[in-house]
Design a protein around this nucleic acid. Structure first.
Lengths: 133, 133
DNA sequence: GGCATCTGGTCTCCAACAGAAACCACTCTG
DNA sequence: CAGAGTGGTTTCTGTTGGAGACCAGATGCC
């Protein structure tokens, strides 16, 4: 997707259409459409956690992507980063009230996934067999 | 993320942990974490549509990604593809009952985005100014 | 003493993937 | 006869994600 380059005021006064490239909700959608962000928000919604604790908890998440994703979440005001001047430095990540409202909705998706995973996998098997058969 | 290569039965009998690489809900999460899939499901939830109609409606979506995403959605049983033997061939995409239940939850995310976009953008501006200032 | 390990990251390199554009066969319209 | 519309696939290229090395300073272990 091309980078959006237009004044914020123009974007906000446009008729809202999520399907237009320059709709501001696309910005939010881009964040939601980030697997790691969704998983991290889910964890932080339960309790604040430290960098390496998150890393150990989420399998397959590289250090680079963790730091990158957390930075993005902090920028969006969904997560708050607090560094304690211990040695070595201790950094804690906590969800913000705004982030909590999002995590609530994301939980509904996790719930859907758990509820319907079997149906989805059955559909996949059917589809793949129809192709090979 | 590495490709999951293990018997389905093993996956289904494991203690469910979305944060483990081999949790089946990760499969669903991967689909949800697809910007185009979310947008397409949102459109198809309203009414069935044809290939080029979807293309015209969703700005910034290339033909390749549209065909690829629709194929994925069909494989997951979320969308049904119907080809009519007209000349030229007419193809209609419609949401399935399963897809409709997901679209319902996704609507809540769209709703969240519209409701909180201003807060997110304010947080971003604050963050960026704190860095430059 | 010296090696490994913990803290929270950054940097480089390579493979994978998304997007742009061309191409396909066929038909209807101006 | 050129152009546009039908629903795609193929090719090429630019961006991105992930693996792994590296950083500094302190602590645990033998």
């Amino acid at each position: 997707m091309p980078t959006i380059e237009m004044p914020l005021t123009d974007m906000m006064t446009m008729t809202p259409d999520t399907y237009a490239v320059n709709c501001p909700t696309r910005v939010v959608l881009d964040r939601i459409a980030d697997k790691w962000a969704v998983l991290l928000l889910g964890l932080l919604a339960e309790a604040p956690m430290r960098f390496n604790a998150l890393r150990r908890r989420v399998q397959g998440l590289s250090q680079k992507m963790l730091s990158q994703t957390l930075k993005g979440l902090e920028r969006d005001g969904l997560v708050r980063r607090t560094a304690f001047p211990t040695v070595p430095v201790t950094v804690e990540y906590a969800i913000t009230p705004l982030g909590a409202t999002l995590a609530e909705r994301l939980d509904l998706l996790r719930d859907w996934a758990e509820r319907h995973i079997a149906e989805v996998q059955a559909a996949q098997t059917r589809y793949d067999q129809a192709l090979s058969g």
